[in-house]
Design a protein around this nucleic acid. Structure first.
Lengths: 206, 206
DNA sequence: ACCTGAACACCGTTCAAGT
DNA sequence: ACCTGAACACCGTTCAAGT
């Protein structure tokens, strides 16, 4: 939307525009490129208008981060084929996760790199937390796979955390340029997933 | 060192003091707490003195990051018992890595979170890079374990990268507060390591 | 629910002039 | 190889006064 063509600058959805424009700025230039002057200039508003919707820049960033998590969640799970074999489901979840990080490195860095504020200290029950819907979908797949005798019957939350660790670590190493070995990222991901499933130790049956 | 008691302010090792004081500031307050004004005040120097040793704040931060990587490397490998079983060696390397991240969360975040500049574009051969000595020690252990028929004979660089991914991901999730499930971090690490070695899939022999 | 315009403290960086 | 002191552009934030 161009400010010049928008005669009624009292558009009314400024809050959403501030968040979505911030998302664009993060993805193209990283979190440091978000300044309130540049942000409000892009939307054609005054610099002080932002404070009608957010108490501070930090509060805006928290909402941008939340929107980023939702984008990640949607990307990873929305295209998941529900008819797939459970192991393949886990594979595709992992692949999509890495894909998202590689395609949106600055956004990925922001949602995990920027310190997030605790909204409710008391609400520590993982089953009632709303901030990790994707994680719970992963746990559900793992529980299904345990019941189908595909996975070991260890703690499903922990197994999901182990898989998430691998994905998160690999994503970070890749987008931060710490992996120099591989010309083919796919090969590295496939070895990672194979290791997650069956380990790096030599199997006696091989 | 107190500036008042230091009559010869031309101490001569200002560069090292700037780096080590920056390390202290990162560890206590995070990377954002490093401002040149506060940093030079602490050392009792003028604000402009820094520019005798670094072309910019960014160049100082790069050296702080390098010092941080060396601290991590030393912590992980210096106490490693060379007489250990190779699998136990991998276990202890992993445990020490996670320990370091938990004990120095702000430093860990900085050395991996802050964009690092490429010093030499052309030097892409992993075997000659000096910026990842710890990684090469890990690769060596893995090669030894492959030769001892303990690990699968996949690409050792990739196996090391997979293990590093797991450690790096787990470290980040822990220090950023994304893991809510576990009261006992040790239990989570042990399951992670067990998964790295033998996978999460149900073994037929069990 | 926005606007203008001015101000504030803080930041990294630069410069002129000293020793 | 440092110092003092002033200045610059940029930043988030606040305020007074409008519509």
């Amino acid at each position: 939307m161009n400010a010049k063509t928008n005669s009624s600058y009292h558009h009314g959805n400024l809050k959403e525009e501030l968040i979505s424009e911030s998302l664009k700025m993060v993805e193209s230039g990283g979190i440091a490129s978000i300044t309130l002057r540049e942000l409000t200039n892009r939307l054609g508003t005054s610099r002080t208008a932002l404070y009608r919707h957010f108490v501070s820049k930090e509060e805006l960033l928290q909402e941008v981060i939340q929107a980023g998590f939702e984008k990640l969640d949607t990307y990873v799970f929305s295209t998941l084929d529900s008819d797939l074999d459970l192991t393949l489901k886990l594979h595709d979840v992992g692949k999509a996760y890495i894909d998202f990080a590689i395609k949106n490195p600055n956004l990925y860095r922001m949602i995990f790199g920027h310190e997030l504020k605790e909204q409710r200290e008391e609400n520590c029950d993982i089953n009632e937390r709303e901030d990790a819907p994707g994680f719970h979908k992963l746990v559900d797949i793992i529980i299904d796979a345990q019941n189908a005798n595909i996975l070991k019957k260890d703690d499903a939350f922990m197994q999901a955390t182990v898989m998430w660790s691998m994905l998160h670590g690999l994503s970070n190493l890749l987008i931060d340029g710490h992996v120099h070995i591989v010309d083919n990222i796919d090969t590295l991901f496939e070895l990672s997933f194979k290791t997650l499933i069956s380990g790096i130790a030599l199997d006696l049956s091989e």
